[in-house]
């Protein structure tokens, strides 16, 4: 495992600290060198549920623990290590950044429910890509929400990156089309398309998203090369429905989970990974431009369970 950069680690950790605190607190309270019995397992399961893991995944993790340690004398740390190892094992295959592809421009379509942090995430992704020496252009296809275009334009200015925009109320698919043509003509490496937030159960809005995909395929049949769904980390089990529907409609290729700097417990990520097998590209841990970090399974699992692995490793 690569050594996590200390500043982002601190952020994620401090963000997760309340979560960890709760988990740590509840687990410590249960296990002070005691025999692992059903009552304790029940309480442990509840602690995981509070972390938004979902009833089924929490049950499975506790079942795993039961098989490994039932009836034995266990310590607080031991229990957390077993759980963290299991969480990391589940997540490990999905810790992948957005792949860089041999196409120009690589088209990254960013979608999600309202208010999950799509525009902010694009601003941060654009920063990462420009830092890597890539020529990035942005398309502000949220033509619905008031001042959404201006919001992306500010991010464009911060990154020194051009933003293609149209007036509020115009057709987002048409804008996506012309943005891709322009990006191609200008020899851009990456085109990121920001879309309006939409609830997954609104058929008309989902059709609009589908249309954006259909239309950009007319310029480049292989586009979009990546379709990133931005999930709000504070969302509960409804995240499952979001991933399911967006995946069915626009073939989501990976996830970014935002707002994990709060008490958002991110536990739902575990059950999402188990169910959908989609890469988790990055985590949003703050509003600043550098607050988007690669997803690392072990670090995430450890932070979630209050284990201080990085200090140990250091």
């Amino acid at each position: 495992m690569t050594q996590p950069n200390s500043s982002w680690w601190q952020r994620l950790k401090s963000g997760l600290s309340k979560t960890s605190g709760q988990l740590t607190g509840s687990i410590s309270a249960i296990f002070v060198k005691k025999k692992l019995d059903q009552d304790m397992l029940d309480e442990l399961e509840e602690a995981l549920i509070v972390a938004d893991m979902g009833v089924e995944t929490a049950g499975r993790l506790v079942g795993h623990l039961k098989r490994e340690r039932y009836g034995r004398d266990v310590t607080d740390r031991e229990v957390r290590q077993v759980l963290a190892a299991e969480v990391a094992r589940i997540l490990q295959p999905y810790a992948k950044p957005i792949p860089s592809r041999e196409v120009a421009p690589q088209v990254i379509l960013v979608c999600g429910v309202n208010g999950t942090g799509k525009t902010t995430t694009i601003g941060k992704l654009a920063k990462m890509a420009t830092d890597a020496g890539l020529k990035v252009v942005l398309a502000a296809c949220d033509t619905f929400r008031a001042a959404a275009v201006e919001q992306l334009q500010v991010w464009g200015e911060r990154n020194g990156v051009p933003v293609y925009a149209a007036t509020q109320g115009s057709d987002p698919a048409a804008l996506a089309f012309s943005a891709l043509e322009k990006a191609k003509a200008q020899g851009a490496d990456i085109l990121m398309i920001d879309t309006a937030g939409r609830l997954h159960n609104k058929a008309a809005l989902m059709d609009e998203l589908k249309k954006i995909v259909r239309v950009i395929k007319k310029v480049d049949p292989s586009a979009p090369h990546d379709t990133v769904l931005v999930l709000d980390g504070t969302t509960g089990q409804n995240a499952h429905r979001q991933v399911e529907v967006f995946r069915d409609i626009v073939d989501v290729s990976g996830l970014v989970v935002t707002k994990l700097d709060g008490t958002a417990k991110g536990g739902v990520v575990v059950s999402l990974a188990e169910r959908f097998h989609l890469p988790i590209h990055a985590l949003g841990v703050g509003e600043a431009i550098e607050d988007l970090k690669p997803f690392e399974a072990q670090a995430f699992a450890d932070a979630l369970l209050g284990l201080d692995q990085p200090e140990q490793a250091a």
Binding site: D52, G115, D232, T234, T235, G236, N238, V268
Partner: peptide, 8 residues
């Protein structure tokens, strides 16, 4: 947000 989980 009506979609909020346990963190509510």
């Amino acid at each position: 947000d009506g979609l909020t989980g346990q963190t509510a």
